[in-house]
Design a binder for these strands. Structure first.
Lengths: 261, 261
DNA sequence: CAGTGGTCTAGACCACATC
DNA sequence: ATGTGGTCTAGACCACTGT
């Protein structure tokens, strides 16, 4: 070859030779998953730098004592995460640059916590109410049927960030006010055995009403971000509908998107 | 517990028996992909209704004359799209309800067009300029290096909806103003052989300045949605940075999210 | 041309859910 | 006990990329 391919710089040969993998066949953790996690760690720690080739799958499978499909499954999972790129006839290489974490169903509490903002929550209402038409439609229940209404104010550094209004099918979950003030709703649902599967979100903006302004410590007419979300479990049944308002001066949505070919 | 299984209603037996699949082994289209598309069509057309079981993979593979891994690959791709759910010991069933289309890298032009809004575009600027610090950082080039600046106004029904400001590495693409007025930027990039791979987006809100208000036919101080996006190709190199402003009264972002287990 | 990933096969055994 | 999906194997041939 020439000096550098110049195209996307396949850079060095397999930088993977120096890595030892530790696969435990007696573990209940699938082999492809063990391998994927160790490859991911190697990428995170810079052992595999962006642009590095991974080395071909056949050699890798021989070296690891795995079949090629198993190795492929591990690699594919990282391709799906956007960490690797495969090119036929070329090889598999670590993606250049900033693909850090893919998109997730954003939990405000987790977002703030991972940003080191030390979120706190004040529960304003936690009660059972009859469903209005829009809530009933979103949750797929009869209008007037009982739902749990949850209204919360979320703070960081003592400043209000968001007003959160959520509706859940009653009897889906016991909502303890004290726990709600120390953790997020999604975390509570998760630990109650509810596995979220998908969600539909709408993000918009509008000006603050006088009431909202007082509540969020903004001026009347200030720009607010709005979000409506309906979340579904694995069977596709709605488990939550939320209508949230964020202070645009203190919060924005941050996404990482992947394009599926 | 009660009369039916009540859990998630596995409903009928395999409703798939009546479907004939048409697999063409001489086609260059992979078999698993042919099968996936035909399964998806069956779901879209209601032949496979929500909750229907798909029938076990082994029988299906025998019936189709395919190996089980190939059938699995087809099914898995639909699971990844959120259309099917697999449960060990139970079976594969069509997800209940509204999972229509998963999240995609949203192109405003396509969004408006698919909503039947007949978008039009007015190109305000299309020229080469030196990169400012923030643009240079986003595109990973030197400050002051030449980039292509694109400023557009997007309309639906003769009303302005958004002001779009984009920066691209020069020489990546020839931006013909006439074509830009009749299609979207992403579509032009795609037909120029640029395959988008991932993007980082920030969505926020703020009040309109006097200038923006005039441009978008809003009042000064009206709430606007803002979006900044950097898009990357499959090697991870930035190919576009955009800073967009939307009239909140006429546009909102609509997402469908999937949770990866 | 040689080397890569992409697809496909025909089995096997295991873990889990349901009856 | 039965049936399901989950994992894994050891090969095979093809399509594409680069030289």
């Amino acid at each position: 070859m020439t000096r550098t391919g110049d195209h996307s710089r396949p850079v060095t040969g397999p930088a993977l030779d120096s890595v030892d993998f530790d696969l435990d066949r007696s573990s209940p953790v699938p082999l492809y998953y063990q391998l994927a996690r160790q490859l991911e760690a190697a990428i995170d720690h810079g052992v595999l730098a962006p642009g590095n080739l991974l080395g071909n799958e056949v050699d890798l499978s021989v070296r690891l004592g795995l079949s090629r499909p198993t190795v492929r499954q591990a690699i594919q999972s990282l391709v799906d995460k956007g960490l690797l790129v495969r090119r036929r006839g070329v090889g598999t290489q670590v993606v250049h640059s900033q693909v850090k974490r893919p998109l997730e169903l954003s939990s405000l509490y987790d977002d703030l916590e991972s940003a080191g903002q030390g979120p706190t929550t004040q529960v304003l209402r936690n009660e059972r109410v009859p469903a209005t038409a829009d809530v009933a439609a979103a949750l797929g229940i009869a209008e007037g049927g009982e739902v749990t209404l949850l209204e919360r104010l979320r703070f960081t550094h003592g400043q209000p960030v968001a007003f959160l209004c959520n509706y859940l099918p009653t009897a889906l979950l016991e909502l303890d006010t004290a726990r709600l003030e120390s953790t997020g709703l999604y975390r509570m649902m998760r630990s109650a055995g509810i596995t979220l599967h998908s969600a539909r979100q709408t993000i918009g903006a509008r000006s603050a009403t006088a009431e909202e302004a007082v509540c969020l410590d903004e001026k009347e007419g200030a720009a607010l971000l709005t979000m409506q979300r309906t979340a579904y479990d694995d069977t596709g049944r709605p488990v939550e509908y939320g209508s949230h308002i964020y202070r645009a001066s203190r919060y924005a949505f941050d996404f990482q998107l992947l394009v599926r070919p």
